[in-house]
Design a binder for these strands. Structure first.
Length: 436
DNA sequence: TCTGGGGTCCTAGGACCC
DNA sequence: TCTGGGGTCCTAGGACCC
């Protein structure tokens, strides 16, 4: 159970990308706009509230959004501005308490348990955050306040758009019970549908359902977690850092029969992105996973765990290529593919075992190929050149032809979350609310 | 014209070890 | 000689979140 007197805020910038565009261009204010995509293709990354009223949502194909809302204006993303303004809003939160857990570019938990005696009650702190973000950053932000993270998050969703909801201690169940189960963290469309099959539509109904029934339906872990949430039993603490568990990259490709040269080109590009980030953070991983999506959105993964962690572009490329082809061959090479992905997991920090890297380990895949040390030397040179002259100054293969409507690299960088990931060796639990 | 790209966590079966 | 239970790791798939 949460600590006595705990006060957690969840702050969430409203329709973030779209609000930034309306801030930057006054002509867009009050109008339905979509960031990303277009009437003929691509995908909508974010929609303004005016567009949401017509049913336009993030993740929706542009042509469908245009059909739902004929007045819709499509704008290209100003990705550098998103990062800058998101950071500025987070800085306001940090002024209220050092215990800020940023969970995406536009959203964070703040533990203000230790701040109330200085700054006033939760409603006062939350109102001050909203006023400052509006005045200093220029953006609307919704805030929920409660005793737990889960409840604070639900409260901020209820508060949207541009609102504030405080759940006073003792009123949790009165607040929670009538709300739809879909607001519980971890309940998506599939789970919602399954629960509806039991006649469970509200959080109160979920709380009153026997645990054996829920766990039979959803599995032990998911069912148990959901019931705990429905009973307002959420003991998660606000943590200021976390460790990455995997690093991946994927790319939609134009629908095509798999072609050896093209598959190799895309995979080497993806492996390069992944390994560059791994090396930049001093990480390497033992498990390499390749993903292939076929038409009809059926997607297949193949993975391989090595004896030693890798972060070498050429090695990851070769392994991913073998894995992808095994998936393609099993499906039948006549099937068209629509996406390729590469990911590395089972990560370990390489900086603490630098000495081992001096010894060239045996290459697990191609006995006659370049030894590990030579491959790492290539990566080191490439990283150094990119560090001086920019990311696109040197690559492993000719730059691929960009599809129309493809997501720009700047958006990929926003989604990487590298800035949210722990860099030091400190334990995530070192910062405990209320500790000296 | 037919849904992006970055992640996390859980499940379940099989291999393997003690 | 036959049998058992528990733990860990690996692999593939899927739900979910932003």
């Amino acid at each position: 159970m949460p600590a006595e007197g705990a006060v957690i805020l969840h702050a969430d910038l409203d329709a973030f990308y779209a609000s930034v565009e309306q801030l930057l261009d006054p002509a867009l204010r009050g109008r339905p706009i979509a960031v990303g995509g277009g009437p003929h293709g691509g995908v909508v990354l974010a929609a303004s509230y005016e567009a949401k009223q017509h049913g336009v949502q993030g993740g929706m194909p542009g042509w469908r959004a245009a059909r739902l809302c004929p007045d819709l204006t499509f704008v290209r993303g100003s990705f550098g501005e998103y990062q800058r303004l998101g950071d500025a809003a987070m800085a306001v939160l940090t002024d209220m308490s050092p215990l800020v857990e940023r969970i995406s570019i536009d959203e964070a938990f703040v533990d203000v348990s230790g701040s109330v005696h200085l700054l006033g009650p939760p409603a006062t702190i939350a109102a001050r955050i909203r006023r400052r973000v509006r005045e200093e950053v220029g953006l609307p932000i919704s805030v929920g306040a409660a005793r737990t993270k889960h409840l604070a998050k639900i409260a901020s969703q209820v508060a949207k758009p541009d609102g504030l909801v405080v759940v006073e201690p003792g009123t949790e169940h009165r607040f929670l019970d009538p709300l739809p189960v879909g607001l519980v963290w971890g309940v998506g469309p599939v789970t919602e549908e399954r629960l509806a099959g039991l006649g469970v539509r509200t959080i109160g109904e979920l709380a009153r359902t026997p645990s054996s029934t829920v766990e039979r339906l959803l599995g032990h872990a998911v069912g148990g977690k959901l019931l705990a949430m429905a009973h307002d039993d959420d003991a998660r603490r606000v943590t200021t850092s976390r460790r990455a568990r995997s690093v991946g990259a994927q790319s939609a490709v134009r629908r095509q029969r798999p072609d050896a040269a093209e598959v190799r080109g895309v995979l080497s590009h993806l492996a390069d992105r992944v390994c560059r980030r791994l090396r930049g953070q001093g990480l390497a991983g033992r498990t390499v996973t390749a993903r292939v999506r076929f038409t009809g959105r059926r997607s297949v993964t193949r993975s391989r765990t090595l004896r030693e962690p890798v972060a070498t572009t050429l090695t990851v490329t070769e392994i991913a290529e073998q894995l992808a082809w095994s998936a393609i061959t099993e499906a039948g090479a006549s099937h068209e593919i629509t996406l390729l992905g590469v990911s590395v997991s089972g990560l370990t920090d390489q900086r603490s075992i630098q000495l081992e890297l001096e010894l060239p380990p045996p290459d697990p895949w191609r006995p006659g190929s370049a030894p590990g040390a030579a491959r790492r030397a290539v990566d080191g040179s490439v990283d150094a050149i990119r560090g001086r002259f920019g990311a696109t100054s040197v690559g492993y293969l000719p730059v691929l032809v960009h599809r129309k409507g493809a997501v720009p690299d700047a958006f990929r960088e926003l989604a990487e979350h590298d800035d949210l990931v722990e860099r030091g060796a400190a334990s995530p639990d070192e910062l405990v609310p209320g500790s000296p």
